[in-house]
Design a binder for these strands. Structure first.
Lengths: 345, 345
DNA sequence: CTGTTAGCGCCTTCAA
DNA sequence: TTGAAGGCGCTAACAG
């Protein structure tokens, strides 16, 4: 007699000699089932290797116990630990994590948004900085949404991340305290909220230290290594150079390091370089990168907690969750040595 | 009159003035529906914004159209592009990708294995090098499984990856041709299949070039940066040093680079360093890393194609899919300069 | 070409 | 404490 491909609740019920309702109860509300019955059921479950069909459960419960995380680029190491935090918190509460790589492609975003409409996911954690394409049309019945790392401008979506302005401030202050007076800011895309917040912090720190803001030292990048490289090249075309670079993320700082090294300069003797994020690789550059660390795993965990509170309609305090940043001082920053000093020696 | 939270096929049928069967047909077998009817249905779908409930579909079809990818560490940049390839190929064929981070934890593996038992996923792409924990007990009804990058020893699971032995061979040959006679092999965990295959290639290349294999130059690492570092330290404790390091992956090569630099050596003058994989960061080290590139995206795509052929029971040729490796020569390898040469200058 | 209907497997009222 | 039964939304077989 060939058994069904995979055991169902009916198989268990038959073997245990009870009804399927009792099996379901024994699993989900053990208190409502007589001790002896429960034992019989558990034995039958063990014997059959029964695992409830998640699809049937989802259909019935109108909940998939899955949360979708949308990231623009899964191969960007910055997101990895956040994802790890999201997953850890989700699994602690019995949820699974679905990871969606959007590449900022509208069609892909729309496809993933449909995951919630078709009940494949109960909520969305956004790390893309914007609502998924297609969200506007269905604004009225949008699933629970939370934004990690990058806030969603102009939308009421709970934000979990760091105080980017503050992070920039302490980074730039470090540079000023080392003696730097001309500090360049290598920004991400100009309209990006992270770029903007970090720029604000940069300007504030400069102001607090009584330093002027020189527009010529503020360059747009794109958060990529190549962007950092290019920014340096553009700066060298002009005649007035900074003594330090504050980069809006580590990738660009790495690009700056590379470009400077290629031109024969020694960091931090000739120039200081400061990043933001503290991606794992930052400690492996030459020299190791001084940077503003974001507690990525914690951000992920906090974002998921908030998300699940929303999904489960638990009371959750409004407003953003702001986690602390930390200045990690390594080898890429030091007192200004003067342009070309290392080469003169 | 408040509409249902989200439109169902019945809403569409009512509005279109047809039966739900016709709606389903209009969507899945448009050819079997009259032109006029189809138009009415499509209009109703557009009006309601109907999206089929994926859970109901899965329950009915016994297929979730989801494939689970199991990776030991999602924050390991090596896996990222593979995942990207998996996702691209999956979405081309109308499937979604579920990413599971196992950390080689048996409980986590078992949990994810259950995803297929509970119909959340139709198949598993393994990048962990072993069957998930709990697979042995249910061997008889295991879902379709495919192994990417790292073959599963002793199991019949289709493998998609590169010829690791060949990759090691061309890498080591490059070193020998540069003039190196004493080449260390920094291995991953000794029992790991990748470690073993690459060791075999290393020994073969040495043999082909008429060079002896010196057991003292073969060290176990663990595929981590720290592991590379440690290997160098262990080597320096002994008296006989190599002139070149062939590392079983890029992370360890980076560790070697770091350790050498810390000791004041210049690569590639004092030592040459060769990696394996060509992770994105390899071009950003000092000096840029020479390495054996794996076509990661292609591996991902091929693995997913194979997986879906299995899931859909399409004819697929047996045996592994082997993709080509490529030696990427950058700055970390050169002719041997002699121990301490750079320091003597 | 279209409608009726029987489940897919599960959970939860409602009665007993 | 337990069982019977309805229904979540969908697809496909069957009849017309």
């Amino acid at each position: 007699m060939k058994q069904r491909e995979t055991a169902t609740i009916e198989d268990v019920a038959r073997i245990a000699g009870v009804s399927i309702a009792t099996v379901s109860r024994a699993v989900h509300h053990p208190g409502k089932v007589a001790e002896a019955t429960r034992k019989k059921v558990n034995a039958a479950i063990a014997k059959t290797g029964f695992t409830a069909n998640a699809m049937a459960q989802s259909l019935r419960n109108k909940s998939s116990k899955m949360i979708l995380a949308l990231v623009p680029d899964i191969s960007n190491t910055f997101f990895a630990n956040i994802l790890l935090g999201l997953e850890a918190a989700a699994s602690r509460r019995g949820y699974g994590l679905l990871i969606g790589n959007t590449e900022n492609d509208p069609r892909t975003e729309a496809t993933y948004l449909n995951y919630t409409r078709s009940n494949k996911a109960d909520g969305i954690v956004l790390m893309t900085g914007h609502l998924p394409y297609g969200a506007a049309e269905v604004r009225q019945h949008l699933p629970p949404i939370v934004a990690a790392c990058e806030a969603i401008p102009d939308e009421y979506v709970p934000f979990i991340g760091v105080d980017n302005r503050h992070g920039a401030r302490i980074g730039v202050r470090h540079l000023v305290e080392l003696g730097h007076r001309r500090i360049a800011y290598i920004s991400g895309p100009a309209s990006n909220i992270l770029s903007i917040d970090r720029l604000a912090g940069y300007e504030e720190a400069l102001g607090q230290m009584g330093l002027p803001v020189d527009r010529d030292l503020i360059l747009d990048g794109d958060f990529s290594i190549e962007g950092g490289r290019l920014a340096v090249e553009r700066l060298f075309i002009r005649d007035s150079l900074p003594t330090a670079f504050f980069c809006a993320n580590d990738d660009m700082a790495i690009g700056v390091l590379l470009a400077l090294s290629k031109r024969g300069f020694i960091v931090p003797v000739d120039f200081s370089v400061l990043g933001f994020d503290d991606i794992p690789f930052s400690s492996c550059t030459t020299p190791p990168l001084t940077t503003v660390r974001q507690p990525r795993r914690l951000i992920g965990e906090a974002a998921m907690e908030k998300m699940l509170d929303m999904v489960e309609r638990k009371p959750t305090n409004e407003g953003p969750v702001i986690l602390p940043v930390e200045l990690i001082i390594r080898g890429s920053t030091g007192a200004p040595g003067g342009f070309g000093l290392s080469r003169a020696i």
